[in-house]
Design a binder for these strands. Sequence first.
DNA 1: TACTAGTGAGTGAGAGCTTACTCACTAAAA
DNA 2: TTTTAGTGAGTAAGCTCTCACTCACTAGTA
Lengths: 213, 213
Amino acid sequence: MANSYIQSLITESLSELNLTAKQKAVLTASLKLFSEKGFERTSTHDIAQSAGVSEGTVYKQFKTKEGILAAIIEPFIQKVLPKAVAKFTAEMTKTSFPDFNDFLLALIRNRMTFAFDNMPQLRIILHEVTTNEAIVSRLENHFQKLLVGPMASIFKKYQETGQLVKWPTNRILRYIVTTIMGYVLPAALARQTINIEQVSREAAEFLLKGLKP
Amino acid sequence: MANSYIQSLITESLSELNLTAKQKAVLTASLKLFSEKGFERTSTHDIAQSAGVSEGTVYKQFKTKEGILAAIIEPFIQKVLPKAVAKFTAEMTKTSFPDFNDFLLALIRNRMTFAFDNMPQLRIILHEVTTNEAIVSRLENHFQKLLVGPMASIFKKYQETGQLVKWPTNRILRYIVTTIMGYVLPAALARQTINIEQVSREAAEFLLKGLKP
DNA sequence: TACTAGTGAGTGAGAGCTTACTCACTAAAA
DNA sequence: TTTTAGTGAGTAAGCTCTCACTCACTAGTA
């Protein structure tokens, strides 16, 4: 469900650029190589070979190697991320789980699925983020604008019904996000998968206790 | 306290190699540049210039550029990390805080101080870890051998006095570590400092609730 | 229908640089 | 005198990016 939706987001943002089959091959090959070896250790020769095109083709569409990286990261930060968040918050406000436990579980499951569906992109961003301050501040900005705002009103409901501790939205979000990351990051780095269902329950159990009033 | 101890660990591991002043300058310059720009974007020319030596000097001691990276990462993983953990667990078992809250606070404060004292090294490892599986599995191994073992017996005490939930050591550690990372990582990436004292209390408050039986 | 002109994605050899690494040499210490 | 740290110009490999060229295809013309 979340899977196919995310997939369509990616294919959409790809087809929007109306690229030829070969240009798309360049992007998908770059995504794979960048996430496996890192941007700097991937040569344009590698990309061309992996995509089955000539190096000239790589540079027809993307003027520089950095341009390929931007063509991967930018749509993800500017389109995939915001759309996924918007869709999720809309779903949450509509469904309106009366029980905070159910809300937490849905949230964690949703976010973990998203992370695993977009593992290559997330790995690339994680790598870049350590040496690129610009991306860090843009992601921070996104976190504030996209997440903190919508979540505040949702949290308020649970706080008023005495199910959620009355801490600032920022603080509550930090614990939720980092607890999820605590499961996703090791798996991402070790290139392993996890049992999302089981792990979500585990994380929800802990967070529910920690975020009780 | 923790600060000066860690500092001495680094200087010790540096002087153990009994390097000349220029060779040490090469290492400290590399540490700075690698953590700021990343290993691949740092040239040996940059290192030589920053250290105020010739490129030949760089290669007198370290046979390859990878060798410089290893000379930074290896002592950290094999000596600094284990010693810091050993010293901490020894301190904890000796002092034996009767109150789990006090233990948690000491633990978090200690770990955060360590992280900020070793920020450059941690940034380099974070960057490398995304493209180097070998380091990942070695760190995982360290986590198991160094942390899980000693912590198990400490946790047992608090579990028996009804202050700590009876979850596996691994699970409890995961939540403690990730909660700390939730404060340290954003600061590390944004290259900012945080109020360790205030933030430690915040984190301890959350963890105490989440880890109550 | 047959011919021609035009288009643009794709090619790959190679220009131009950067980079990691070497080595013949110097200066100074032992 | 021997040894050793340090030097920096030099080298070869590898990188990004360019550009003159090909060729399948389309659209207009006779």
